[in-house]
Design a protein around this nucleic acid. Structure first.
Length: 595
RNA sequence: GGACCUUUAGCUCAGUUGGAUAGAGCGUCGGACUACGAAUCCGAAGGCCGCAGGUUCGAAUCCUGCAAGGUCCGCCA
């Protein structure tokens, strides 16, 4: 917010330079950053360096001279800027007048829980599709990472002024759910006592399948369940499949998501695409635009022979001409039997998304779908002309460890670690922070022991402790009869220590951080903001605990510092809320000596 | 054979979209509570930013090539 004021000053100054014939007409991009070193001012701009090439007359190609010319012409009607210095190859180092910070503190406090929101999204509509785990069993840890990354991206986008829809794509068509239905049917026979379960190689061995069968029997009642179990599978395949999928969603996936603090606005079922012939319509649209052909595809190059065996060489298939957009190969939409591929469903799904009028599509996928991004983007481009949509956030692998020892996870062996177990073990707050504390494009180690530890290895406790500490100070002040802090400029001017100004600057950088994290779809930035900000406070607190305490003899300083604590607590709470993590007013002390 | 991701301190990782002397936590060593929460803080040591070129006032950041590690590569979902 302060940065924006400086930008305005520079923009007006550049306009004046144009008017005076020093620069050609704009627009200009105004680079402005908060320098690492205090000696470089409150803000630093590189405009003289980037514009010197375009400068007119004697200033052309001379960044330092241009910087001097700009500094001499500062247009600052509101008196924000105290001093502009020229440094290095042509940096403009701007020092602000002392009142800027206390004034801004008032605005932070006035905005309260809304502080940090902005309107860079300008109300544009964006869909974030995430999790979308197959409804064939409980969620595992990999889904957990995608869940939190997607959820926090959606929250970031909301805070940045987008209109956001959170959507879960349910793959309730195809072979895997058919296999689930068959497995549940077998367990149902066992449960109803009409026969032993006969599980084939394609069936799901996991113990949860029996749970689903039991729930199914409860839902249907014994008589009906037994009658269906006694009939051949094919008699009730559709019913079994629909019921099994819904039970998995209702008893496994939705409860876990709920424990994780995640809610979806919309559940989109793949079966709907087929039922309402959306797949045909999407393919027809591609055809109309000239991107459909029937071809014999060459066998994949350099692959294992076993893959080639299972293909059907020589049979022409209906394909999407994705090579037209630069893909390595054209992509089949139906197999030799004419059954639509998963890709055909996804084309239809994204066609559906487009028709719902979103400006941005964001998909959070696991890294194992990485090879899939291009073809979907090409399909969207073919259907709409939009390049680079959907924007795909690929979350890399999660390696689950316990005390540094990897926990082996077999994909279909049924012994993978469920997300629910992890949440039960370490708590939703710790798990959420753990999943977003690293860039999404790097693999992450999730150590169950460390995530539970109350240490600096584990940012959630560090930050929550800081929030509780601020709350405690404010409580203490009230207990000691200090008047509840109310903002006025005169009081806020008492914040004169360099660490206090530094803390104010950190607070004021928050809205820009949120906006940046939203456009880049990078939740981890919020976690780093949290640990750095509260770390700066801890440091300030300890440094002055014997000299300039928050609650001290000087009433005015005390009031000012309480205002600072209030603003800090607010910004921490806001950032934690963005991450979906609680901001406790107090924390129970750990019993360190025991154990 | 190909696609995507990663490579920064002993370890785990940031690095504000190309800026000034590359940062943090852990670990190691040494320190700080009779007063607002020591779940904290301070200091020291620790670097060929994988390698080699290129782009420019300026590169950990951008482009090319190479190397190492990870993930993926049905006409499955």
């Amino acid at each position: 917010m302060v940065k924006h004021l400086v930008e305005q000053v520079l923009a007006r100054t550049l306009d004046r330079c144009v008017a005076e014939g020093l620069l050609p007409p704009g627009p200009f991009e105004i680079g402005l950053e908060a320098p690492k070193q205090a000696a470089h001012g409150d803000f630093s701009s590189n405009i003289a360096m980037t514009l010197s090439r375009r400068a007119l007359g004697a200033l052309e190609g001379k960044p330092r001279d241009l910087a001097k010319a700009i500094a001499d012409r500062v247009v600052d009607p509101d008196g924000i800027v105290a001093k502009v210095e020229i440094a290095g190859p042509g940096f403009l180092n701007v020092r602000l007048s002392a009142d800027v910070w206390p004034r801004a503190l008032g605005e932070v406090l006035a905005q309260g829980a809304a502080f940090g929101t902005s309107n860079v999204g300008a109300g544009r509509r964006v869909m974030v599709e995430f999790v979308s785990a197959n409804p064939t069993g409980p969620m595992h840890v990999g889904h957990g990472r995608g869940a939190v990354v997607g959820d926090v991206c959606a929250s970031l986008l909301t805070a940045a002024g987008y209109q956001v829809v959170r959507e879960y794509y349910v793959n309730d068509a195809g072979r895997q759910v058919a296999a689930l239905a068959h497995s549940v049917y077998q367990r149902l026979r066992e449960h109803c006592g009409v026969g032993a379960a006969e599980l084939g190689p394609d069936d799901y061995p996991g113990a949860y399948v029996a749970d689903v069968a039991r729930a199914m029997a409860t839902e249907w009642g014994d008589a009906r369940a037994r009658s269906i179990a006694a009939q051949p599978f094919s008699e009730n395949a559709g019913l079994l499949q629909t019921t099994a999928v819904n039970l998995v969603l209702d008893t496994m996936i939705k409860p876990t998501l709920s424990h994780f603090g995640i809610r979806f606005d919309h559940w989109f079922f793949e079966s709907k695409l087929h039922r309402e012939h959306e797949v045909e319509r999407a393919i027809a649209e591609l055809d109309r635009r000239g991107f459909i052909a029937v071809e014999v595809l060459p066998p994949p190059k350099g692959m294992e022979p076993s893959v080639e065996e299972s293909a059907t060489p020589g049979v022409p298939l209906k394909i999407f001409k994705s090579t037209h957009f630069g893909d390595d190969a054209d992509r089949p939409l139906a197999n030799a039997a004419g059954v639509y591929t998963y890709f055909a469903g996804d084309v239809a799904y994204h066609w559906d998304k487009l028709q719902r009028g979103f400006d941005r599509l964001v998909n959070v996928w696991g890294a194992d779908h990485g090879g899939y991004v291009k073809r979907v983007q090409f399909a969207v481009e073919a259907l709409s002309g939009k390049k680079g949509q959907p924007e795909v956030v690929l979350t890399q692998m999660v390696n689950l460890l316990k005390d540094g020892v990897p926990l082996r996870m077999g994909k279909r062996s049924g012994n993978f670690v469920e997300l629910q177990e992890v949440i039960d073990e370490v708590g939703a707050d710790a798990a959420r922070i753990w999943f977003i504390q690293r860039r999404h494009d790097a693999a992450v180690d999730f150590d169950l022991a460390k995530a539970k530890e109350q240490s600096n290895d584990n940012p959630v406790f560090y930050v929550q402790y800081g929030h509780a500490r601020l709350a405690s100070i404010l409580r203490k002040a009230a207990e000691q009869g200090v008047a509840a802090p109310r903002f006025d400029l005169e009081t806020a001017r008492a914040l004169t220590l360099p660490e206090e100004t530094d803390l104010l600057k950190r607070i004021l950088a928050y809205p820009e951080l949120v906006a940046g994290a939203a456009t880049a779809l990078e939740p981890h930035r919020v976690v780093f903001f949290l640990t750095e900000t509260i770390g700066a406070f801890h440091s300030y607190y300890t440094k002055y605990k014997h000299t300039e305490r928050v609650i001290g003899p000087d009433a005015k300083k005390t009031a000012a510092r309480l205002l600072l604590c209030l603003a800090l607590k607010q910004v921490l709470a806001n950032a934690l809320a963005l991450c979906g993590v609680s901001a406790p007013e107090a924390m129970a002390r750990a019993e360190m000596e025991q154990a």
